[in-house]
Amino acid sequence: MTMLPGPTPKKLGLAIDLDTCVGCQACVTACKGWNDQGYGAPLSDQNPYGADPSGTFLNRVHSYEVQPADAPAQLVNFPRSCLHCESAPCVTVCPTGASYKRAEDGIVLVNEDACIGCGLCAWACPYGARELDPAAGVMKKCTLCVDRIYNDNLPEEDREPACVRTCPTNARHFGDFADPDSKVSRLAAERGGFALMPDLGTKPVNRYLPPRRKGAAEASPLAPLLDIRATGLAGWLDRVLGKI
């Protein structure tokens, strides 16, 4: 049903650390790898070895340059996937009830057997979290690896989303944001975790942890070189030439 379930007892989601993410794309690959073979239709590729390849992914890592007014420019790698919003617009617009938010843990999922592939949920999502799979004709999105996190057949350390499990710099953290003492809640509180485009009223669960203020030099390390006082013959020439 596309009615939102209201406040859920658990709010499972990710805290993504923009400070430690190195943009290696390992989470992109791990996500594609896991979700290609388990839950729902496989994530297809179109023309993968041709001149114009494309494919369906549930997680993309962008890179942005941030130029503060008073400090050197910074490169920020930015993983982008479903934020499992509390007030998910992708759920309420769905005409068939295929798109739903789980009442027990807040995960937003697609029942692919009921999806007609109209694409309206992807239009309603501000974050580009949904991609229609052209081969299956159904909408694909992050499942928070629902087939891993509750999977008793996996060793306990593997019961977290594939992107989190694979991240070599521990930039991705999985947990329950409804529990104020959970790892992700504490991280978000300590590091000033923020939501994306909060004005749109989607109430995302996922939090992004901002890049830490680096111990950057106040000015460019090359600055002293810009004010060279020549001495000796060059200094004499500098003074004479300056007077002509």
């Binding site: 494309s54 941030v66 503060p68 239009w123």
Partner: peptide
């Protein structure tokens, strides 16, 4: 700035897109 949440830190510019090939989002939106 609001889309990435990085706007408070400074001026944000795309350095590199997440993918070199096209995708559903680029085609549809």
């Amino acid at each position: 700035g609001s889309a990435t949440g990085l706007g408070d830190l400074g001026k944000v510019r795309v350095f590199e897109r997440g993918h070199t090939a096209g995708n559903y989002l680029l085609h549809e939106m």
